[in-house]
């Protein structure tokens, strides 16, 4: 993984229209971005489509990246996540057969927990997530890491929708306070 300043300087070059910088960024990051998209859209072909669209968007919008306001990698990840979530919300292509649904939701649960476990000890995010009740933490991880909706989280955790919404709302506020 390249240093943060390297990603930032690549974005600055891309903003000036340097295509070789975009190619370098692709070489450095495409594999991880495909993996991030795949946690959300599940299918390899769709994950690649997300990353393809995301790099075109980076080319088009690199000038909007404001180095003073955010880190470059997070900006890149945000673009990929938004594309992936939009694809997911569009819905049509994401149908599971009934038999696959539970297994698919189970996979997602695992992805979400693995991401949490993989955070470095001492990472503020790990500490703050760790301070939440288990259900709040799992609900938040399922939304963020795997792009589940409120309803899907409720189905996964086998809890009423209203309760899940409240967990996520209270949990997210606590998390933001803890991190700030």
């Amino acid at each position: 993984m390249p240093e943060a300043h390297e990603t930032r300087s690549l974005l600055e070059r891309i903003a000036k229209g340097d295509r070789s910088a975009l190619a370098l960024l692709f070489d450095h990051e495409a594999g991880r971005l495909v993996a991030i998209a795949r946690r959300i859209v599940r299918r390899q072909d769709l994950a690649e489509e997300v990353v393809q669209d995301a790099f075109v968007a980076v080319w088009q919008r690199a000038a909007q990246f404001d180095a003073a306001r955010g880190n470059a990698m997070a900006w890149l990840i945000t673009i990929v996540r938004h594309r992936a979530l939009n694809l997911l919300r569009d819905g049509g292509r994401m149908d599971y057969h009934d038999g696959e649904t539970l297994a698919a939701l189970g996979d997602r649960s695992l992805d979400a927990l693995n991401a949490f476990d993989a955070l470095a000890e001492g990472d503020a995010l790990k500490t703050c997530l760790g301070q939440l009740d288990e259900f709040k933490r799992r609900a938040i991880l399922l939304c963020y890491v795997t792009g589940l909706s409120h309803g899907e989280v409720a189905a996964t955790l086998d809890a009423p929708l209203g309760t899940v919404k409240a967990w996520i709302r209270r949990g997210t506020l606590s998390l933001q306070e803890c991190l700030s």
Partner: peptide, 13 residues
């Protein structure tokens, strides 16, 4: 939150 994304192991394409 993007720290969670950074835990994803790179995949082929």
């Amino acid at each position: 939150m993007s720290r969670l994304d950074e835990t994803a192991a790179p995949m082929g394409y």
